[in-house]
Simulated assay, not measured.
Amino acid sequence: MALLMAPHTVTVVTAPNGFDAEGNANTDWSSAGRTTVQGQVEPAASSENRDNRDQVVTTYLVRLPPGTAVALRDRLEWLGVTLEVTGDPLPWLGLTALDHIQLTATRIRG
């Protein structure tokens, strides 16, 4: 079943774990896989940190179709913006047309 109100094209970016030249574990974003789905993205909160630099943190509430493969360490691309998944993707089930996966994602600038 498709997400009822899904006006946004969202790309889920999943990167495999790799290792750097010193053998330390890292995430290899250069060989990331991409899956595009229709979802819903809405701003939830924004804050500014001006202690040592100008930094803006914006949090988004994201709803994706049920069964979308998305994990806590993934990224999302939406309207040319890259977001970090920062909340556990949780299924909302039982209402058929309203079933979805809900998560939070963050963009940090500065």
Score class of each variant (00 low, 15 high):
residue 89 P to E: 03
residue 87 G to E: 00
residue 98 L to Y: 06
residue 1 M to D: 13
residue 91 P to R: 07
residue 40 Q to H: 11
residue 30 S to T: 04
residue 63 R to W: 00
residue 58 T to F: 10
residue 75 R to G: 09
residue 1 M to W: 04
residue 13 V to D: 01
residue 1 M to P: 13
residue 8 H to D: 15
residue 107 R to V: 08
residue 28 D to M: 14
residue 76 L to R: 04
residue 91 P to D: 05
residue 105 A to Q: 02
residue 65 P to F: 00
residue 100 H to G: 00
residue 10 V to P: 10
residue 97 A to F: 03
residue 63 R to H: 10
residue 108 I to Q: 14
residue 69 A to I: 08
residue 29 W to C: 02
residue 47 S to R: 15
residue 86 T to Y: 06
residue 31 S to A: 10
residue 43 P to L: 10
residue 49 N to M: 02
residue 48 E to A: 14
residue 40 Q to C: 08
residue 38 Q to H: 08
residue 42 E to K: 14
residue 78 W to M: 15
residue 68 T to W: 01
residue 11 T to K: 09
residue 110 G to A: 15
residue 94 G to M: 04
residue 63 R to Q: 07
residue 82 T to K: 05
residue 77 E to W: 07
residue 35 T to P: 01
residue 74 D to L: 01
residue 68 T to G: 12
residue 51 D to G: 01
residue 49 N to F: 04
residue 96 T to V: 13
residue 55 Q to W: 04
residue 12 V to T: 07
residue 8 H to P: 06
residue 40 Q to P: 02
residue 34 R to I: 07
residue 56 V to R: 15
residue 82 T to R: 03
residue 38 Q to M: 04
residue 43 P to A: 15
residue 53 R to N: 12
residue 109 R to W: 06
residue 6 A to K: 03
residue 22 E to G: 09
residue 25 A to T: 13
residue 100 H to W: 01
residue 21 A to G: 09
residue 56 V to W: 04
residue 46 S to F: 11
residue 61 L to F: 14
residue 101 I to L: 15
residue 3 L to F: 01
residue 8 H to I: 05
residue 109 R to I: 12
residue 80 G to A: 07
residue 67 G to T: 08
residue 45 A to K: 12
residue 57 V to W: 08
residue 3 L to D: 02
residue 75 R to F: 06
residue 10 V to T: 11
residue 43 P to F: 04
residue 50 R to Q: 10
residue 11 T to G: 03
residue 71 A to N: 13
residue 91 P to N: 01
residue 58 T to C: 04
residue 51 D to K: 12
residue 9 T to S: 14
residue 60 Y to C: 05
residue 61 L to Y: 09
residue 42 E to D: 03
residue 48 E to I: 11
residue 55 Q to C: 08
residue 51 D to T: 07
residue 68 T to R: 00
residue 5 M to R: 00
residue 31 S to P: 00
residue 15 A to E: 05
residue 53 R to K: 08
residue 3 L to H: 02
residue 47 S to G: 13
residue 80 G to L: 09
residue 77 E to I: 08
residue 76 L to C: 09
residue 67 G to A: 03
residue 11 T to H: 06
residue 29 W to F: 00
residue 29 W to I: 02
residue 69 A to G: 04
residue 46 S to H: 05
residue 96 T to Y: 10
residue 78 W to N: 07
residue 84 E to C: 06
residue 74 D to S: 06
residue 75 R to V: 05
residue 75 R to Y: 07
residue 17 N to K: 13
residue 13 V to Q: 07
residue 1 M to N: 15
residue 19 F to N: 13
residue 20 D to P: 09
residue 109 R to V: 15
residue 100 H to A: 11
residue 26 N to D: 11
residue 14 T to R: 15
residue 38 Q to P: 00
residue 13 V to I: 15
residue 57 V to Q: 13
residue 94 G to T: 13
residue 14 T to L: 03
residue 103 L to S: 08
residue 85 V to N: 03
residue 54 D to R: 14
residue 37 V to I: 03
residue 66 P to A: 04
residue 64 L to D: 03
residue 5 M to I: 08
residue 32 A to M: 09
residue 2 A to T: 10
residue 39 G to W: 02
residue 66 P to Q: 03
